[in-house]
Design a protein around this nucleic acid. Sequence first.
DNA 1: TCAATACATGAACAAGTTTTCATGTATTTT
DNA 2: AAAATACATGAAAACTTGTTCATGTATTGA
Lengths: 121, 121
Amino acid sequence: MPLDPHTTATICQDEDAEQIAILNEHLIDPSTANRLAEVFKALSDPNRLRLISLLLENEVCVHTLEATLGMTQSAISHQLRHLRQLNLVRFRKEGRHVYYALDDDHVRGLFKQGLLHVEHG
Amino acid sequence: MPLDPHTTATICQDEDAEQIAILNEHLIDPSTANRLAEVFKALSDPNRLRLISLLLENEVCVHTLEATLGMTQSAISHQLRHLRQLNLVRFRKEGRHVYYALDDDHVRGLFKQGLLHVEHG
DNA sequence: TCAATACATGAACAAGTTTTCATGTATTTT
DNA sequence: AAAATACATGAAAACTTGTTCATGTATTGA
């Protein structure tokens, strides 16, 4: 009997072709796996998460991010570049300042859902 | 004017202490950031996501995971060990087989939420 | 125009991760 | 008891990632 209450079946051996077919239906394709991994990877670094937490409700300039996070300006800029390339943040320039904000409600959603799980246990 | 409709304020410069105080309230603490990063990191590898997708609804033995994913037995075992150490999967032994299943509804939830975002665009 | 401020970026380095390779243990089959 | 099957694991190799260092561009101020 399976341990996990959510589990519907036990699948093993290559003998039972029908079971293996069922299993294959659940397998996500490599392209989906890669894109999904990219999103989660963007959220898999503590400093990047701290940065994102600052952008959850406000747009903030690079210098203030630097001061608030206690990271070097270069490190911040590299991280922002990373997030930009994934279309997770966007920016606008005003004079010599560059303001960053979340580009996407997806990130906000995943961030908050992850936070719930971590906080309540 | 901010670009992001969700954005409530524009924060810049160290001059305005009140704004910086508001910003600091949003900053997650390092311990939370680390635990949050760990969860997302577990979901940040394509092969691990493909593996998890097989365990979403069923418990599956290692050999079948190997055959279905087209990975070596060793690579599978190492990934399973990793997921075990994070309490994301559990296993039970039966004869010479070891059945793995998700340990945790959290992962299922995050996985599915991530998938929605990736699939619909 | 010269200096200062705000930000970006390439290159190198340190650290971490995933896979492979080789080997080991436990269970079953013959 | 020997061979085969199922799985685990340490160590090394190959690859990825984050930060630092050095330097570059653009805008503002003196």
